[in-house]
Amino acid sequence: MSHAATENRPALLDRLREALPKIVLSPTVAIVAIFVYGFIAFTVYLSFTNSRILPTFDLVGWKNYENLFKIRAWDIAVSNLLVFGILYIVICCALGLLLAILLDQRIRAEGFIRTIYLYPMALSFIVTGIAWKWFLDPGIGLEAVVQGWGFENFKFGWIKDRDMAIYTIVIAAVWQTSGFVMAMFLAGLRGIDSEMMKAAQIDGASTFALYRRIVIPQLRPAFMSAFVVLAHMAIKSYDLVIALTGGGPGTATEVPATFMYSYTFTRNQMGIGAASAVIMLMTIAAIIVPYLWSELREKKQ
């Protein structure tokens, strides 16, 4: 082997080491580019076409968006999302914070209790929806059991009530997600400087003032993360609604995700379904992009 070949060998090995991660990741990057961002772009394009049961390429401009906001079912879906999203985020954050504060007291069997709270998050929303559908069904669930105990006047038929059905979605979603929010807040609580809290206690601060003035303000990053995650999950809620109520009674629990599926695949209005999907994407982006921008700015500072 020549001297020049011997010198070039380490350089070749170095280039291979540098290229190996790119070679390994390139199939994943290509798949994500095609099947995620490619289909997002295709959906945006379909929202400007006259697509019905199958995609077409006849552009109609903003007609699908104009028709979308004239459909009463879309107004109902957006209203339901606002009710569900606000209650879901507020209750999850409040309950998660309360549970985190209780666990932060170094109670006995903390690990076991934390696991119980987190367990629902390991279930899919389909499983959660079916389980709560059985539990809330007046014929076989909570109402039937309590009446079987002798309380015949007990009524809990929210799942069959058009005015109350949306709140059953909130109950099931909060049950599944509050433990995850608790874990986020608990991590934030464990990161607070204990010396600062001890100094405040020495100065005579009450427990309420301690949490209001010191603890909760320092949980801002956890609150922001929880808000982004919960808002994203609320906007794209589909499987939980379908499994629990199927969007009913009537359209009482219709949300944008079920509206999009219905108009795209059962009503053969693919253009309008694509327009609703783009609106959902823009809403999620309006929440996530400012959050990511603020996080990157803080890291740079």
Rank of each mutant, 00 (worst) to 15 (best):
P249D: 08
A199P: 09
I169N: 06
S225T: 13
L142F: 09
L186N: 02
I214L: 15
S262Q: 13
L230P: 04
T245M: 08
A209P: 00
D239H: 09
G248F: 04
Y167S: 04
P221I: 01
V241Q: 06
M196A: 13
A173Y: 00
T207A: 15
W149P: 00
I216K: 06
I214A: 08
A205N: 08
L240A: 10
R162D: 12
G191E: 06
P256D: 05
A172D: 04
L186Q: 01
R220V: 08
V170K: 12
T251F: 05
T168E: 05
P221S: 04
R220D: 03
G204D: 11
M182R: 00
I216A: 11
W158I: 05
L186Y: 07
E143Q: 15
V181P: 03
Q218G: 03
M182V: 02
M184T: 12
A187G: 15
M196H: 13
R213Q: 13
F223R: 04
K160V: 09
V170C: 13
A209T: 09
V146N: 03
V228G: 05
S237L: 08
P249S: 09
W158G: 02
G246R: 07
V174C: 03
T264K: 00
P249Y: 08
W158S: 07
Q176M: 04
F227I: 14
V170I: 15
A252P: 03
G250F: 04
A165M: 11
R220Q: 07
G157N: 15
K198T: 13
G141F: 01
A257Y: 00
L210H: 06
Y261A: 09
M260L: 11
L210T: 05
R213I: 06
G157W: 10
G204C: 12
M184A: 10
G247W: 00
Y211H: 12
L219E: 06
F208K: 13
V146R: 03
D137T: 08
V145W: 14
F208P: 02
V229A: 07
T253E: 05
A257Q: 00
G179P: 08
M260N: 02
V215T: 12
S262H: 05
M197K: 12
K236N: 12
E254L: 10
F259A: 01
D193R: 14
S237M: 13
G246Y: 04
T264A: 09
G247C: 07
T245D: 07
D137Q: 06
E195V: 13
L142H: 06
F154L: 10
